[in-house]
């Protein structure tokens, strides 16, 4: 690892720790309780974890094998993070599609707004890296591509949320027609 990479990694860690601390303090002060899930949602989440775990495992193995056999122009940290994000994406996507991602209250607006913000911030970061020509370092997709991965993950989740909402609205119309 070069000095720049270690510095960037340290910065990321610091940001994550500060964010966790802020969320913890806000939740504690506002008396917010964690989201509750019903029995069906917990079962779905269990299945989602399984799919997510296997997706991560298989992609990590594939990435490891490819790293051994080919000269992939991707920073190893980006590759491993992509595998982890794939696992998270599979879990989240499955849970969203099966109505088990948001809790009983169905209060999903804040989460969706947060997701949109995360996508915007990361896309802006990627654009700034492209403009500064720092996305690819020495012919290798650098650690700054993590922002692109993050944007891609949350964008995919948003797409699944929109598709699911469209499906629910269609199903509601159909059931109303059946009732009439």
């Amino acid at each position: 690892m070069t000095y720049d990479n270690v510095y960037a990694f340290g910065m990321y860690c610091a940001i994550v720790v500060v964010l966790i601390a802020i969320v913890y303090v806000i939740r504690k002060k506002s008396g917010l309780k964690s989201e509750k899930y019903d029995e069906r949602q917990k079962i779905i989440q269990g299945i989602g974890y399984k799919y997510g775990f296997f997706a991560m495992l298989i992609s990590s193995l594939a990435y490891g094998l490819m790293m051994g056999g080919f000269d992939i122009p991707i920073h190893p940290a980006v590759g491993i993070t992509a595998c982890a994000f794939l696992g998270v994406g599979v879990f989240a996507g499955y849970c969203i599609w099966k109505d088990a991602y948001f809790g009983i209250s169905g209060n999903d607006k804040k989460t969706i707004i947060l997701m949109v913000l995360v996508v915007i911030v990361n896309v802006l970061s990627v654009v700034s890296h492209i403009m500064a020509d720092t996305l690819i370092e020495d012919g290798v997709l650098g650690i700054s591509a993590m922002n692109a991965l993050c944007a891609l993950l949350f964008l995919a989740m948003l797409v699944v949320i929109v598709a699911k909402r469209w499906k629910i609205s269609k199903a509601d119309v159909r059931s109303k027609e059946e009732d009439e």
Binding site: K36, D38, E39, R40, Q41, D99, G103, I104, G106, I168
Partner: peptide, 13 residues
């Protein structure tokens, strides 16, 4: 769903 403490989707299912 609210009365029994589950989500609407669970009741629908």
């Amino acid at each position: 769903a609210d009365a029994v403490g589950v989500s609407r989707q669970t009741m629908n299912a």
